[in-house]
């Protein structure tokens, strides 16, 4: 399958433990998920900014059964939606606090980017250390 450049660029960032936020070179606004044209000004002149990786946890869940095909061995795992301080939001995996334990997480917790989730093309976040 042909992977679009905005996808391979974003994934290359994750692979080097950088969370990239697409940023429009024309209007300066951040876009998440990355788009083919800026949804704010329709420019196709789009670049990347490295996120500071800080944000708040809007919500999350721990999936304990019914994994999609290929995710069976990951169970249980926690998925969250993070609002980055840069003003965009994304779906992530949450790092457990102990073995398979996400009980310390709450909505609106401050969270921070950890890196890429092993073989998965998604970001991992954990509770902020500060």
């Amino acid at each position: 399958m042909n992977i679009p450049k905005i996808v391979s660029d974003f994934r290359a960032g994750l692979a080097s433990d950088e969370l990239l936020v697409q940023t429009c070179n024309a209007c300066g606004k951040p876009n998440m998920w990355p788009r083919y044209a800026c949804p704010h000004c329709q420019s196709e002149n789009l670049g990347w900014t490295r996120s500071a990786g800080q944000g708040s946890l809007h919500s999350f869940c721990v999936l304990r059964q019914g994994a999609p095909e290929g995710f069976e061995d990951d169970i249980p795992y926690a998925i969250g939606v993070v609002k980055l301080d840069e003003g965009v939001q994304l779906a992530v995996r949450l790092q457990p606090e102990g073995t398979e334990d996400w009980s310390a997480y709450q909505c609106d917790d401050r969270v921070e980017f950890v890196g890429k989730d092993g073989a998965r093309e998604c970001a991992v976040f954990r509770k902020s250390s500060d």
Partner: peptide
């Protein structure tokens, strides 16, 4: 390309909204 890699599915979506 963006969210499927997290392993999200319908019950996970319902669970996040519920939480």
């Amino acid at each position: 390309e963006w969210e499927l890699p997290t392993g999200i599915q319908f019950n996970a979506i319902g669970a996040m909204i519920t939480r």
